[in-house]
């Protein structure tokens, strides 16, 4: 464990608590419910919620940010939240799949970005189509990011080929849902 003083809990709320809370906020849990799970009242939670990002901004080593990402990815295992939310139910369906299947995550990550390119709220589109909340999507992102970076380093070409194929698939899909792109009729 590091001696970084910026890692000291804020009002008793540790970085692990805070990271899990953020993940749960992204899944639609209210601030009141978060405060209750953490055993504090709303003013206390809101101060911690303001001060943890300040600590990240002050930390030149990026240690807090890195740990935040790790804890965020493990939010499902946080003892305080795992019992309080969904009665501790395990992830199911696509939510379980996106955390277990890296390719599925990478494909949906592209789909989500392409949705934005076609004027849709990508996060909402993922929620509507797959029932995956923004919080769970971000948990999957934190989980897979290190591995994806390693893959890009190892074989950039393979990575881009895969991304290009996903991009082509979803651009085609979203475009045809809108009756094509503005300049589809212009050819060489």
């Amino acid at each position: 464990m590091s001696n970084n003083p910026l890692l000291e809990p804020i009002h008793g709320i540790s970085l692990e608590d805070y990271s899990a809370a953020c993940a749960k906020l992204g899944s639609g849990l209210s601030e009141e419910a978060i405060a209750k799970v953490l055993g504090v009242e709303l003013p206390v939670w809101q101060e911690a919620n303001l001060l943890w990002p300040e600590r990240m901004k002050q930390d030149q080593t990026y240690e807090i940010m890195t740990l935040f990402g790790q804890y965020f990815a493990q939010a499902g295992q946080h003892p305080k939240f795992s019992n309080a939310v969904n009665g501790g139910a395990e992830d199911a369906g696509y939510t379980a799949q996106i955390k277990a299947d890296k390719d599925f995550y990478q494909e949906l990550e592209v789909a989500r970005n392409v949705a934005y390119e076609y004027g849709l709220d990508g996060a909402q589109w993922i929620a509507d189509k797959y029932g995956i909340t923004l919080g769970d999507f971000q948990i999957a992102a934190s989980k897979w990011n290190t591995q994806i970076h390693a893959e890009i380093q190892a074989d950039f070409q393979e990575y881009t080929q895969k991304q290009d194929a996903y991009n082509a698939k979803y651009r085609q899909m979203f475009a045809s849902a809108q009756g094509g792109n503005v300049a589809d009729d212009i050819t060489f």
Partner: peptide, 12 residues
């Protein structure tokens, strides 16, 4: 959203 959609068309 609208801006993103327009920029997407420029990119296409």
């Amino acid at each position: 959203r609208m801006l993103a959609g327009l920029l997407g068309q420029l990119r296409r």
